[in-house]
Deep mutational scan, measured.
Amino acid sequence: QTTIQVRVPYRVVGLVVGPKGATIKRIQQRTHTYIVTPGRDKEPVFAVTGMPENVDRAREEIEAHITL
């Protein structure tokens, strides 16, 4: 297991999390990772935990939302 920090712009935190957390839950299920969402007043950084290859996939999925 490994944990990485995925930093995103403030404006996309809501996009990545999705309505009621649906998007981030879907990313967690698809990539078999555990993702901690940043709090409102915190740095916009997601903490992604899982097997290294799964963590990389989750990071790619999160980063895909940044380019939307």
Rank of each mutant, 00 (worst) to 15 (best):
R59C: 08
T23F: 06
T3W: 08
V17S: 03
F46R: 01
N54S: 10
P52V: 06
F46A: 03
P52E: 07
T23V: 10
I66S: 11
R57E: 02
E61V: 01
I66G: 08
Q5T: 11
T31S: 00
V55H: 09
P38S: 05
T2V: 15
P44H: 00
R11F: 13
E63H: 12
I4P: 03
R30S: 11
V17W: 03
L68F: 13
T37L: 04
P19H: 15
T37M: 10
T31H: 04
H65D: 12
V55M: 00
M51P: 04
R26Y: 09
E43Q: 08
Y10S: 15
L68K: 14
K25C: 06
Q5W: 13
K25H: 05
E43M: 04
T37K: 04
F46H: 07
L15Y: 12
I62M: 06
I24N: 01
E43H: 05
E43N: 09
R30C: 05
E53P: 07
T2F: 08
V48N: 00
V12Q: 13
G39T: 12
P44G: 00
T37C: 13
Y10W: 15
D41K: 03
R57F: 03
T23I: 07
Q29S: 08
A64V: 01
P44C: 01
V16R: 06
H65P: 02
P19D: 10
Q1F: 15
L15K: 13
A58G: 04
R40F: 11
H65G: 00
R26M: 11
I66M: 10
V48R: 07
R30P: 01
E53K: 09
T49F: 05
G18Q: 11
T3N: 13
H32L: 09
T31I: 06
V12R: 06
T23H: 02
E43D: 11
R26D: 13
E61Y: 09
M51H: 13
T37S: 13
I62V: 02
I35C: 00
V36W: 05
H65R: 09
V48L: 02
D56F: 09
M51Y: 09
E53M: 11
I66V: 13
V17T: 03
V12P: 00
I62N: 08
I27A: 06
A22L: 08
T3Q: 05
D56L: 14
R7G: 00
K20H: 14
I4S: 06
N54D: 14
I35F: 03
V45K: 02
G39Y: 01
Q5V: 05
E61S: 04
Q29M: 08
G21A: 00
T33Y: 02
T3D: 06
R11N: 15
V45Y: 10
V13A: 08
V48M: 09
I35D: 07
I24C: 01
R40D: 09
R30E: 11
R26H: 07
D41R: 05
D41G: 14
R59L: 06
A22N: 14
T2G: 08
F46W: 07
R59K: 13
Q29Y: 02
R59Q: 06
R57Q: 11
I27R: 04
V48P: 07
Q1W: 01
P9A: 06
R40Y: 11
V8Q: 03
P9N: 08
G21C: 07
L68Q: 15
T37G: 09
R30N: 12
Q29L: 11
G50V: 00
A58Q: 05
T23C: 04
I4T: 04
I27G: 02
I24M: 03
T49E: 06
V36H: 09
V55I: 02
V13L: 07
L68C: 15
E60V: 11
Q5P: 07
L15Q: 13
T67I: 11
A58S: 01
K20N: 11
I24K: 06
G50K: 12
E60Y: 11
V12N: 08
Y10D: 14
Y10M: 15
Q29P: 04
P44D: 01
M51G: 05
T23K: 06
F46M: 09
P52A: 06
I24W: 00
Q29A: 10
P52F: 00
E53G: 10
G14K: 10
V45L: 08
V16N: 00
Y10A: 15
T33G: 05
Q29V: 10
Q5R: 12
R11A: 14
P9F: 00
L15I: 09
G21K: 02
E43K: 06
I62F: 06
V8G: 05
I62R: 05
P52Y: 06
I62E: 07
H32Y: 02
E53N: 05
A64W: 03
T37I: 14
Q5E: 13
I66F: 11
T3L: 07
E43P: 12
T49P: 00
V16Q: 07
R59P: 06
V17R: 09
Q29F: 01
A58Y: 02
G39I: 01
V6S: 09
M51W: 03
E63Y: 13
Q5L: 12
G50Q: 01
R59M: 11
E53C: 12
H65F: 15
Y34K: 15
A22G: 02
V13W: 05
I66Q: 11
V48D: 06
E60D: 10
Y34I: 13
I27C: 02
H65K: 11
G50N: 05
V55D: 01
R57K: 13
G21S: 08
A22I: 07
T49N: 05
Q28T: 04
A64C: 04
G39Q: 14
E60T: 09
P9T: 02
T33A: 02
V17E: 06
V13C: 00
R7A: 01
R30K: 13
E61C: 12
D41C: 08
D41P: 03
V13F: 00
F46G: 04
V36T: 13
